[in-house]
Design a binder for these strands. Structure first.
Lengths: 334, 334
DNA sequence: TACCGCTTGCAAATCGTTTTGCATACGGCC
DNA sequence: GGCCGTATGCAAAACGATTTGCAAGCGGTA
C-alpha cells in the first residue's frame, strides 16, 4: 500500500483524523500527551502530509515564479543572463528559507505553454512599458511584484533598484573627468533606462553641454551596441566618456573603441551598471555599480509574500548602490 | 462568487461534469457538437481547470526541480553559477514547452527547508560521490536523473557530459604543443574530474612523461586555485601547459601566471572546460570546450519526463563536445 | 417481440486534507 | 440533584477535479 495518510496515522494513534490535523496545525487545543503520541507515531510510520490535498483545501500553490521579461539567451550570447541569474539564485535561497519554492519562468512564448504554471505570485524582473507578462499574470489573478519600478504601472508594488541614485553615481563620476559624456541605453522602455536618461539630461544641461544619447535594441546584444558605438565615435570624435548601463552593450563598446583606435580609459572612459562577471572580466575591467542584487532579490521575495499575507510586512533593507571604480574609467595617476 | 468550476460549466452547457471532463481529456467519446458547445462556453465564462484538484486526483506535481549540488555562490564570486544557470535557462525553456514548470532548488541547507518542495522529479547537476542531495530525493521517492554520471551510483540515469571525450580534446591539444602538461582538478569527486584524471594518466604514460596533477577544493574558488598554481609553477618550472577544467580555477591560474612572471600562452599554455563568459572574457581568452549545455539540459528534462512516464522515450541528440581554440593555448603563428 | 451491441451521458466514489458543527464527559456551583 | 461552562474529540462537509460502473436510447437482426 501507498504512503500513509492522515487516516492511517489517526488509526494508529487511536484518534480521529481531525485530532491529528489539529495536533499539527495547532488551530485547536489538543491534549499535550495525545499530541506527543501522534508526533512520535508520525515519525515512526513515516507520515508526511500530502501537499496536493492540503493545497486543494487551503488554496495556495506553495511556490512563486521568477520571470524574465526578456528572452533568456539573446542570439549572440546571454546578455541579461548574469543579472537575472544572480537574482534567481538569491531569490531561490530566500524563498526556500520561507518554506516556498521558486519557479524559473522563461519569457512568454505561446500563451498556453504557461498554462501548467501554478504559483501564488510572481516576481517580474525589470518589466518594460506595457510588458505583456504583467497582463498575463493579472488575467490569472496572480499577485505580482516587480524588481525595478514598472513603467506606466504606478500601482504595482516593487523593489526599487534605485536607478536614479545609480545614474547619479555613474554620471557624476564620468562628468567630473571633464569632456563630453555620452549615453547608450536600451531601446526598450525599462525604468532604469528612463531614469538614467532623465538624470543624464539634467546633468548635461547643468553642465551646459549638449546631450549625446542613443538607444540600442537589447535584442541586438553586444554586436548591435558595438556597431552603434562605432558610428557614434566616428561621427563625434569629441566624446570622451560613455555611460553604458547594459553590461553586454558596454563590452560591445569596448570592441568598438578598439576598432576606431581609441584606448580605454585614455581616449575613452567607460562605465556600466551591473557589476557582474562581464564587467569584472572585461579588458580593461569596467567601472560599475554594486546594486546589491542579493538583497534586492530577498526583498522582492519578502514583499511578495507579505502581499500574499504569508509574511508580516517587515521592510527588508536594501543597501544603497555603490560605485565600484575600475580601470575603464579611472586614469592611472602618475 | 469565485472562479467557475467544472460544475458551473456543466450546468451552463446542460450536461454533467463527467461529460465536461471527457470533452477536455478525450478519454471517452463525446458528441462533437456537445464538445464544441462546451469549449465555447468554457471560453465564454472563463473556465480553467483547477490544477490543485486535478493533481490531488491524478497525482503528479506538474513541476520538476533543478538542483545544484554546490552552494550557489561560493564566497569569492559565483564559480559554478554560469554553468548551472546556463543549464537552468535551457531546462526551463524545455520544461515549459512540455507543459511542466521548473523549480530552482538551492543546495541543501537545513533539511526541513526543502519540505515545501513538491516535484515529480529532479535533475541534479554534476553530483559528487555520496552526494547527500541524491539521498534526499531517494528518501522521498522522487525520481532523479543527473547531468554527468553520478560517481558510485551506476544505476542512476544520467545525461552524459562526455567527459572522456572532453578530456581527450583538451589534453591532446595541449600535449601536441610539446613540453610538460599539468592538470588541476577539483577536490570533490565529480565524474568529470575522475574521467579527466584517468585520461590524463593514460595520455601522460603513453607519452612517457611524468604526471603533475593536483586537486583544489572548489570552495576555495579562484583564490585557492591561484595559490595552488603559484606553488606549482614555482616548484616545477618545466611545466609548459596546464589543463584546468574548472573555469574559475583557470582564471585563478591566469593570475598566478602573472605573479610568477609567465606570459600566457608563450610561457604557459592554458585550457579549461566550460566555455562560458569567464573563458571568453579572460585575458587572454581561454581555450575551452563547447559542451552544448542547452542540448544537455533539454535532454535531461526529456530523460526525466520519460522516466516519469510523461513522455515517450525519444533519445534527444546531444552533439559531441567540440574544442574552441583561443589565445590562451594557441601560439600566434609567425 | 426479444435480444444484442453501440453510443452517449450521468451518478457517485475517490484523492487526502482542513474545518465546522455537534457530542460527550466532567467539574464546579447553586 | 440540576444546570452550566469548559475541555476534548469525532463525524461529516467541503475543496474541484477524474474515473468507474451503470443505464437509457436506438438501430439492427433473428
Amino acid at each position: 500500500m501507498g504512503k500513509p495518510t492522515i487516516a492511517d496515522l489517526a488509526k494508529a494513534a487511536g484518534v480521529s483524523a481531525t485530532t491529528v490535523s489539529h495536533a499539527f496545525s495547532g488551530r485547536r487545543y489538543v491534549d499535550p500527551e495525545t499530541r506527543k503520541r501522534i508526533e512520535a507515531l508520525a515519525e515512526a510510520i513515516g507520515y508526511r502530509p500530502n501537499h496536493r490535498a492540503r493545497r486543494l483545501r487551503t488554496g495556495g500553490a506553495g511556490s512563486i515564479a521568477l520571470v524574465s521579461s526578456m528572452p533568456f539567451a539573446v542570439a549572440a550570447g546571454p546578455s541579461r543572463l548574469g543579472f537575472l541569474m544572480e537574482i534567481a539564485a538569491a531569490a531561490a535561497v530566500t524563498a526556500f528559507s520561507r518554506g516556498i519554492s521558486l519557479c524559473l519562468v522563461p519569457p512568454l512564448g505561446p500563451r498556453d505553454s504557461l498554462d501548467a504554471l501554478e504559483v501564488d505570485g510572481a516576481i517580474v524582473v525589470e518589466p518594460e512599458l506595457d510588458d505583456p507578462v504583467l497582463d498575463f499574470f493579472f488575467d490569472r489573478g496572480v499577485e505580482v511584484v516587480s524588481i525595478g519600478r514598472a513603467p506606466g504601472r504606478d500601482s504595482l508594488p516593487f523593489v526599487d533598484l534605485q536607478s536614479g541614485a545609480t545614474a547619479h553615481l555613474l554620471l557624476d563620476h564620468l562628468l567630473e573627468g571633464g569632456g563630453r559624456v555620452g549615453l547608450i541605453t536600451g531601446l526598450q522602455r525599462r525604468n532604469s533606462y528612463i531614469e538614467m536618461e532623465a538624470v543624464y539630461a539634467e546633468r548635461v544641461a547643468q553642465a551646459g553641454l549638449s546631450a549625446i544619447a542613443i538607444r540600442v535594441d537589447e535584442r541586438g546584444g553586444e554586436q548591435a551596441a558595438a556597431a552603434a558605438a562605432e558610428r557614434l565615435l566616428r561621427d563625434d570624435p569629441t566624446i570622451s566618456a560613455l555611460c553604458v548601463p547594459v553590461d553586454a552593450f558596454a563590452t560591445g563598446v569596448l570592441d568598438a573603441a578598439g576598432i576606431v583606435g581609441r584606448t580605454v580609459p585614455h581616449d575613452l572612459r567607460l562605465a556600466t551598471r551591473y557589476d557582474g562577471m562581464r564587467a569584472r572580466l572585461a579588458t580593461p575591467p569596467l567601472t560599475a555599480v554594486d546594486l546589491h542584487l542579493d538583497q534586492v532579490a530577498a526583498a522582492a521575495v519578502d514583499l511578495l509574500l507579505a502581499r500574499l499575507g504569508q509574511l508580516d510586512p517587515a521592510p527588508t533593507i536594501v543597501s544603497p548602490p555603490s560605485l565600484v571604480l575600475r580601470a575603464s574609467s579611472v586614469l592611472p595617476s602618475r
